[in-house]
Computed example of a mutant assay.
Amino acid sequence: MSFIFITLGTCLIVSDTLVPRVARRLSLTKHPNCSTLSGGQAIELLARSGDRRKFPFRTPMGRIYDCCFSFAGLRSQITMSIMKKEAEEGIEQGTLLSCVNDIAAATQHTVAVHLAKRTHRAILFCKENGLLSSEDPILVMSGGVASNQYIRKTLTVLTEKTGLRLLCPPPRFCTDNGVMIAWNGVERLREGKGILSPNEDVCYEPKAPLGVDISAKVRTAGIRLPSGRMKISF
């Protein structure tokens, strides 16, 4: 059986970059519960006891009806909110804010909603164009973002609503993409597959395309999502 990869949307500014930057901007390594955690882990931990409603960040690209992701606008919103709170509390950058839990919760929630909305549109497009399997269609999420349980829950709600099944690796395998690529190299070296001699010329692409890009077609379709809110609870 052969498979054809189709690109419905691309990541302009990815969440794996946004969340660590927010954690650094909040100086979460100074938090007693986060000193040994990565940025993503720190945000997820603090978000559990935060109130996301105190920082109602707007979901990015709300009026662009395609499947591309971008967190640039969200990053600006978060940065402005942090600067405003620092001024209100009379502290300098590098000092922990009293509301870090709330900012973490709002950041995590907005990222999850953005991912869910773009994915929802992708699912609807695939259904309209017969691109999904009629038997047990699956949505796969992997990489560092898949280790976040809140995002997993959000996409679980979405897949249950749309008749798909969410499949994610165990959290311990949801690591940085660079680590996964390097590990793939380790396995290939062990098996002796795809190994070139030092004398062979190698051509590489800094950003290799994946399959056929039909993101323009998705944008032209202009699919609007049905109204309604997803309830996410733990």
Rank of each mutant, 00 (worst) to 15 (best):
M1V: 08
S2V: 11
I4Y: 13
I6D: 00
I6V: 15
T7R: 02
L8F: 12
L12Q: 07
V14H: 06
D16I: 08
L18I: 06
R24Y: 09
R24L: 10
L26M: 12
H31P: 05
L37K: 15
G40A: 13
G40Q: 15
I43A: 04
A47H: 02
G50E: 02
G50A: 08
D51A: 13
R53K: 12
F55N: 06
F57M: 03
P60I: 07
M61W: 05
R63W: 12
D66W: 04
S70W: 10
L74G: 02
S76N: 05
Q77M: 13
T79A: 03
I82P: 08
K85V: 08
Q93L: 07
T95S: 14
L96V: 09
L97W: 01
V100N: 13
V100H: 13
A105Y: 00
T107P: 07
H109E: 11
T110L: 13
R118F: 08
E128T: 10
N129A: 01
N129E: 14
S134L: 14
S134F: 12
S142E: 07
G144K: 09
Q149E: 15
I151R: 03
R152G: 12
R152Y: 01
T159L: 02
E160I: 04
K161R: 08
T162C: 07
T162L: 10
L167N: 15
L167A: 15
P169T: 15
P169V: 07
P170T: 09
P171M: 02
F173G: 09
T175C: 09
D176S: 04
N177S: 10
M180P: 00
A182G: 14
G192Q: 07
G194R: 03
L196Y: 08
S197W: 11
V202Y: 11
Y204V: 15
K207C: 12
A208P: 15
A208W: 06
P209K: 02
D213I: 00
D213V: 03
I214H: 07
A216E: 11
A221N: 02
I223E: 04
R224F: 03
L225T: 06
S227Q: 07
S227D: 15
S227W: 05
S227N: 09
G228T: 01
R229N: 09
M230L: 05
